[in-house]
Amino acid sequence: MGHHFSLRRFNQILLALLLFFGILYLGQSFIVPIAIGGLFAMLLVPVCRKLEKWRVPRTGAAVLCVLTVVVVLALVIVVLVDQITALANDLPRLDLRLAALLDDIRHFINDTFEVSREEQNAYLQRSIRSSLQLVGIYLRSLFFFAGSILVSFIIVMSYTLLFLLYRRRLKNFIMRVTANYDANAHAIVGKITDVASSYIAGVFLVVLILSIINTAGLAIIGIEHALLFGLMAGILNIIPYIGSLTGSLIPVLFALLTKDSLWTPLVVAIFFLVVQQIESYILTPNITGGKIKLNPMATLMVLLLGSAIWGIAGMIVFVPYLGIAKVVFDNINRLKPLGYVLGKDGDGEG
Rank of each mutant, 00 (worst) to 15 (best):
I239H: 04
E118I: 14
R97I: 03
R129W: 07
G190L: 07
F20D: 15
F163M: 13
L210N: 10
H107I: 11
L73M: 11
Y159P: 11
V207S: 01
A61T: 12
A255S: 08
G217N: 05
S244Q: 09
R129A: 07
A298P: 08
S158H: 05
Q28S: 13
D347R: 02
A183H: 02
R168A: 13
L164T: 07
L266E: 01
F10H: 11
N333D: 14
H107F: 10
P296W: 01
L170A: 04
V47Y: 04
D104Y: 13
V45C: 10
R334P: 04
A226N: 06
I250E: 04
V69W: 03
R97V: 07
L236I: 11
I250K: 02
I109M: 06
S158N: 13
Y340M: 03
N172C: 03
F10D: 14
S152I: 07
R126Q: 13
A62R: 09
E224A: 14
T288S: 00
I174V: 12
L124F: 08
T288V: 01
D347L: 11
Y241R: 09
L304T: 10
V267L: 01
V69N: 05
M297H: 12
F20V: 01
I316C: 00
S158G: 15
A146L: 12
D103P: 01
L94R: 02
A183R: 10
I105G: 09
D90V: 05
L132M: 02
I34Y: 02
A196L: 03
L15A: 15
L134W: 06
G37T: 09
V177F: 08
S130A: 14
L98Y: 15
A216T: 10
